[in-house]
């Protein structure tokens, strides 16, 4: 019996965002990376275009992280104190498509680094690697509002992806992105309505910026509510394909950050003998979380463990194979 393949006809597609800029485009990146643009659900090549593969960013801090699991020492221990060298290692040895720099040291409860010091860290990473760069603040809104204008100006022309804008604090970062032509991460708390609302508010400040937003739907790790963010992302992606322009942005998720604070990734095999080897378990907790989100449409996965990155990139290779009928 001949099967009539069921192909969805979508009205619209996900917007494309270009990250980074080469010398010809006013920056210093060796190449740019384009995310988004798909006109089908994740990896369903048979019914639409998936023009850009999902990409993996490795997370770099501007100060040595104290609380990372000791298993990371053998990969990054020699570069933890130097964000430039750290980023270089991520790109050259661990296959990062791009780098996410988290300006942790700016946290007033930690080093309280000045905006200028933050900008210097960004410059350092830009000088060390040729890939496009994502820059996150320290997570304290007031401080971040002071950082972003300085960082955005220092890296003018580099077409960064800056984050994050939230419903309560989006103006400072949005202005910084508008003034210096960077892209923007809009973060909403696992809530599709707030996600839309925030994008609308940003659009009201600058219609040009709508095409430069990347959605961070706020994700949870496997076992810690992943199904909530997974479903929010599936709804957002369906909305995008059905023509909701305010949901039609690529999506980013901090996979490594969430996974590596769970008990499952960190606890030793001695303490939980039923769960098996700790490092492999942590790697697979991270890779599984990432692979699940790929199925919900995540475009930029921010990760930590080199082996997890390797596994996820292979999974992406496999999924990018054409499956047209």
């Amino acid at each position: 019996m001949a099967v009539e393949i069921l192909k969805e006809k979508y009205r619209s597609k996900v917007g494309q965002v270009v990250l980074g800029a080469t010398a010809a485009e006013g920056g210093t990146r060796s190449h740019t990376i384009t995310v988004g643009g798909e006109s089908a659900l994740p990896f369903l090549h048979f019914e639409g275009e998936i023009p850009n593969r999902p990409v993996v960013a490795l997370e770099v801090w501007d100060m040595a992280p104290e609380e990372w699991n000791p298993c990371f020492k053998k990969y990054y221990g020699d570069v933890f104190d130097d964000p430039g060298a750290w980023a270089k290692k991520c790109v050259e040895q661990y296959g990062a498509d791009l780098i996410l720099l988290r300006l942790v040291s700016a946290d007033p409860d930690l080093k309280d680094s000045s905006p200028e010091e933050c900008a210097a860290a960004v410059k350092k990473v830009l000088a060390a690697v040729g890939v496009p760069l994502i820059v996150l603040g320290c997570g304290k809104a007031e401080k971040d509002a002071a950082i972003f204008p300085v960082v955005a100006e220092a890296a003018a022309g580099e077409n960064l992806l800056l984050g994050v804008a939230e419903l309560e604090n989006y103006k400072a970062i949005t202005s910084a992105c508008m003034a210096h032509k960077h892209n923007l991460i809009a973060q909403s708390p696992i809530d599709i309505n707030i996600c839309k609302q925030l994008n609308i508010l940003i659009a009201e400040m600058s219609t040009a910026l709508v095409d430069r937003i990347v959605i961070d739907p706020t994700i949870a790790a496997l076992g810690y509510g992943i199904e909530y963010s997974y479903s929010i992302m599936e709804r957002a992606r369906n909305g995008a394909l059905q023509g909701d322009r305010m949901l039609a942005m690529p999506m980013i998720g901090n996979v490594g950050f969430e996974v590596w604070r769970t008990k499952e990734a960190n606890i030793s095999a001695e303490e939980e003998p039923g769960w098996g080897d700790q490092e492999e378990r942590g790697v697979l907790w991270e890779a599984t979380t990432a692979a699940a989100y790929l199925q919900a449409g995540m475009n930029i996965l921010v990760m930590r463990h080199p082996r997890a990155v390797e596994l996820v990139k292979k999974n992406i290779d496999d999924l990018m194979c054409d499956n047209s009928y």
């Binding site: 496997l222 076992g223 997974y230 039923g274 769960w275 098996g276 378990r281 907790w285 890779a287 599984t288």
Partner: peptide, 13 residues
């Protein structure tokens, strides 16, 4: 065990 636990967790979730 460390390979199956994540998969079973994802299924449950």
């Amino acid at each position: 065990r460390q390979q199956l636990l994540p998969l079973l967790s994802w299924r449950q979730n």
